[in-house]
Design a protein around this nucleic acid. Structure first.
Lengths: 337, 337
DNA sequence: GAGAACAATGTAATCGATTACAGACAGAAT
DNA sequence: ATTCTGTCTGTAATCGATTACATTGTTCTC
């Protein structure tokens, strides 16, 4: 015996399935006592409407998909949490996927979400260029919202941070603390936010007179291990710069740990900065100066676009929501100029 | 013009919808040149099968649901990541929900997953007793797997840690380091793993001769802030114990931070231990002695149960997979006895 | 060359809801 | 009394796939 269907309820309540549907969803008025009878029948059978059947008929679901590159990075999980929380209020379910930084998996997950008839896809594309093709293809049938990162030439809504302003603020801060030379450790420059932060760092260093030697630009994976490896390479390559600018907090954690192992003192020997301000950055052995991303505001902006796209508002051109960064000064740059 | 359907493909390829279905899914043989024609037609239209329609007809989906209490705790996000990764390999999609520690939301999400016709629900129930009713109700129609925590009297599969063994190992360690008195800071004892760890801690303290005064048992929220608040209360209540045992790493982070602010030295004045071993525990101001949860093994065990439930294996009685803890000794208990 | 066995394909029923359309009934207006 | 209006309810079509069953054509056997 499978799950009860609307016909079972209809039979028990002695009405037609149409009436049951109307009574339970309230789509059309039903006489009070009939409604009660239907409700009672539904309750006694433990009936729960089959959303699959409903979705097929209505040609719409209440699902949205989300694809992030990495769930071990708290930045993305906080983003997921913020989005999920707000979607709940809108009675929307979240199909969550991780691309594990792999464009093939990413493309595969996009197809899967497309088949699932999600109403919107929220995505932080893993590769600025290689992600573009799959994104463009999907964007023809499903509205896309890009978050934080974006893929080259894919014209969709976007929500993210003003990286240029963030880097300007950050570099100004370390210049005030006496930095004249810098190194940059970031994600491989194939993801758009890694590249955009690196570009911004380069530009600002140039403008503010900080030497950022190309051989001190180290790109790798956005993980603690990636940061630690980079700090190692940096220390082997000769004189340390005044400051190591990291493209993400998790990278900076690895750098702090690496320097600690090597006996290099932060901030005395070298300053270190992060980017994201995830919760643990205040707790590290040496607390981290970083750029705070307004993750909750990002989630809120993204969901408000979702709402827009799922409502029956007229289509509108893609919109970029650029949010403001905030500099958080802590011990890792605590040095007098 | 909506998305192309199987009829569009059939018309273009000059065959029936049945043949298209068989050609694309491979459910029955189709002549080679016909198959190619169908494939070509599908490609040229950008056809992607509607999983909603398929699910309705087959009376099964390829979705599983997962409900965790808190996505800001890395323990749960790592669990989600491990599960998601493995489900991908099985071509299964994940509907992720957070209950935000609220049994009402939890019950609501369970209903929603039930309506979505998920094949299995993975859940870490938020409340040992109050979650039970909703869980029991849902369990009648959808197979449930409980992870880490469990709800009272709900007989389903379960995957989690041997808390008793973990506490025994941990307390033995701190006894060796000279602990004679202890405090316990954990989640409010309404979630089963909080209670089971507390019970285990009480029992082991008793057995190993460590005084765990009831007024030194502080229960609150499993967050950094919760830990910090508890450390405050503890320091105000008089003499510090030899060791503060925390029910989760994030709590311990807050405790470390709280003691740091109060000028209390760890491990000299008091030792601190965590539970989970999330990645940041090696990086905190003072690295944390903790119990490592084999998160990946937990995810693997859970997904293997999923596979079991979704395959056509005969039903079998609920099974409890109890995994082994590992003690990780770091600086927060680094003291000679 | 008749009949059996099999492979490939088509026709139409099916999954469980929603909803267009039609009908029944009550009360109001003329 | 008749028509009209509005409210409720029922019948059956519908969404897009899969699949039971029927049909066609082919190959094989004797």
């Amino acid at each position: 015996m499978g799950k009860p269907t609307i016909s079972d309820v209809a039979r028990l309540a002695g009405v037609s399935t149409a009436t049951v549907s109307r009574a339970l969803t309230g789509s059309l008025p039903v006489r009070e006592h009939v409604k009660e009878q239907v409700q009672a029948a539904a309750d006694s059978l433990g009936y729960a409407a089959n959303s699959i059947a409903r979705a097929l008929r209505q040609e719409r679901t209440t699902n949205v998909g989300m694809i992030v590159p990495d769930l071990s990075n708290p930045f993305f999980t906080l983003l997921v949490e913020g989005v999920e929380h707000r979607l709940q209020d809108l009675q929307i379910s979240l199909l969550l996927c991780s691309s594990h930084g792999d464009v093939t998996i990413e493309a595969e997950r996009l197809r899967s979400l497309q088949r699932s008839q999600v109403e919107v896809v929220l995505i932080s594309p893993t590769h600025e260029f290689e992600s573009a093709h799959a994104l463009k293809t999907i964007a023809r049938t499903v509205p896309l919202i890009q978050i934080d990162q974006f893929a080259d030439g894919v014209e969709t809504d976007w929500v993210g941070l003003d990286d240029a302003l963030a880097m300007r603020t950050l570099i100004q801060h370390v210049v005030e603390r006496g930095a004249r030379t810098a190194a940059y450790i970031g994600g491989s420059a194939t993801d758009s936010s890694a590249r955009s932060r690196l570009d911004a760092a380069r530009a600002e260093c140039l403008r503010q007179g900080v030497a950022l030697d190309e051989q001190n630009v180290l790109l790798g994976s956005v993980t603690i291990a990636g940061g630690e490896a980079a700090s190692q390479r940096l220390s082997e390559s000769g004189a340390l710069p005044d400051v190591v600018i990291c493209g993400a907090d998790v990278i900076a954690y690895g750098v702090l740990q690496g320097f600690d192992r090597l006996g290099i003192k932060v901030p005395a020997d070298v300053m270190v900065t992060g980017f994201d301000d995830i919760a643990f950055s205040a707790l590290t052995r040496l607390s981290l100066t970083t750029i705070r991303q307004p993750i909750d505001a990002i989630a809120e902006a993204a969901v408000s676009v979702v709402q827009n796209l799922m409502g029956d508002a007229p289509p509108r051109p893609p919109h970029r929501s650029v949010l403001q960064p905030e500099l958080i000064v802590r011990d890792s740059t605590n040095r007098v100029a």
